[in-house]
């Protein structure tokens, strides 16, 4: 799992559609925290952290060795009473923002985080343009113009 190359056929599965993680994520239960509340908190934090060597999976969902190690680290920190921000900051200081599945809001990610509002706004502006349009006669076709001329001449 740590090797930088990837299995060709796994690559194929990925190519078609599927998330390329085919190993099972059945793990050692001993790594879970005994206190269910703490364990739930650790899971919530872990699901925010990316398994670095996988596709877009969180460390909670991956069976990669590094993900397992990071899960352990998360649980140690949670057991010490650290909150989500502290654990994520610890991880970011080592692996950078890459480890966060939800990127921080910075100038560079403004477009990303602003996209829902931006897209909605663009759509609403477009719709308003359509709805505010005044009913107006369609420009006459050549045929109609000829007919009009004919009619006015008759008069």
């Amino acid at each position: 799992m740590f090797q930088r190359g990837r299995h060709a056929s796994v690559a194929l599965a990925a190519m078609l559609f599927l998330a390329p993680v085919l190993a099972s994520a059945v793990d050692d239960p001993s790594e879970m925290l005994p206190d269910p509340k703490q364990e739930a908190r650790a899971e919530a934090i872990g699901s925010q952290l990316r398994c670095l060597v996988c596709q877009n999976e969180s460390i909670e969902d991956s069976s990669a060795g590094l993900a397992r190690d990071l899960r352990k680290v998360v649980r140690e920190h949670v057991a010490k009473g650290e909150n989500q921000q502290q654990v994520i900051a610890w991880m970011v200081s080592r692996y950078g923002d890459f480890i966060r599945l939800s990127p921080p809001v910075t100038v560079a990610t403004l477009l990303l985080w602003g996209m829902p509002a931006l897209a909605l706004l663009a759509g609403i502006v477009g719709a308003v343009v359509i709805f505010r349009k005044k009913p107006q006669a369609a420009p006459l076709t050549d045929e109609e113009r000829a007919r009009l001329e004919e009619l006015s001449r008759e008069r």
Partner: peptide, 22 residues
């Protein structure tokens, strides 16, 4: 969200992940 990481990497040389929470 899908295209942001490679574009960030190309334009700013920074790598980010955009995943399920986002």
């Amino acid at each position: 969200g899908t295209m942001y990481p490679p574009f960030m990497s190309l334009l700013f040389g920074k790598t980010i992940s955009v995943g399920k929470p986002f």
